[in-house]
């Protein structure tokens, strides 16, 4: 069999050829739509997964570094000066926000207002934590949605494909397996893509939700400790 013959036999896609491309091309346009949508979902899910994995890894490492620096006895003023220009992770942002509020209360106004300082600092830190957690959680809902709805969308494509294939079976008045099989295969392809998109989405969502939870806890803990330190400072100065 020379290459020319192979090309000759491959080029016209007969109905007995059941490669994935043929399955896609022969499908009904609604099934095609479902397949394309699920493919896009899968691409997006994996993009989010890659993005979040990198983000969380970096964030965790930065937090480790910051905590070592924070508890090393280094002056908080120096730490603030080195970080205030661009706080590049959640804990730094938290620290910078609290320090900024502290400095503003001490340096900005001539008369020192200690009365509500403790409360203000806690407020600022809570807001910052909420913002940072929101940043960490961004796009995770996409994963949850794809994970839960993907199989249904795929199933819809399958049902539609089987419906149309049964209609064509009825039209051709032939029930041999060779007639039935391609339609069923292309219909099931939709469910396959739905599962391909949904399974990683669900797994990644669970993993990332746990990760976000852990980091939020860590931020809360740091905020409480830092608030305690600042509170002691306030009491000493006041």
């Amino acid at each position: 069999m020379n290459p020319a013959d192979v090309a000759q036999s491959v080029l016209p896609l007969t109905s007995s050829d059941l490669s994935l491309l043929t399955l896609f091309l022969h499908a009904h346009w609604i099934v095609k739509l479902v397949m394309i949508g699920l493919m896009v979902c899968s691409v997006w899910v994996w993009a989010i997964a890659i993005d979040k994995t990198v983000l969380y890894t970096r964030s965790r490492k930065a937090m480790d570094r910051f905590e070592t620096a924070f508890w090393s006895g280094q002056s908080l003023e120096e730490l603030y000066r080195s970080l205030s220009s661009k706080p590049n992770h959640s804990m730094a942002a938290l620290f910078v926000a609290a320090m900024r509020e502290w400095k503003r209360s001490f340096e900005g106004s001539p008369q020192k207002s200690f009365a509500g300082l403790q409360m203000r600092i806690e407020k600022v830190m809570q807001v910052t934590i909420a913002r940072e957690v929101e940043r960490l959680e961004r796009r995770l809902l996409v994963l949850a949605t794809v994970g839960s709805a993907g199989p249904f969308v795929g199933l819809f494509g399958t049902v539609w494909g089987i419906m149309t294939s049964f209609q064509s079976i009825a039209a051709s008045k032939n029930t041999s397996l060779a007639v039935v099989a391609p339609g069923i295969a292309e219909a099931l392809f939709a469910t396959a893509i739905g599962l391909v998109a949904a399974i990683p989405a669900t797994i990644f969502y669970n993993k990332f939700a746990g990760e976000v939870n852990k980091q939020a806890q860590r931020l809360e803990g740091f905020a409480d400790e830092f608030a305690a330190i600042l509170s002691r400072q306030i009491d000493e100065r006041g």
Partner: peptide
Amino acid sequence: MQIKTASAIST
């Protein structure tokens, strides 16, 4: 890392 890079990798 930008989400665009991640999208490109995923695609």
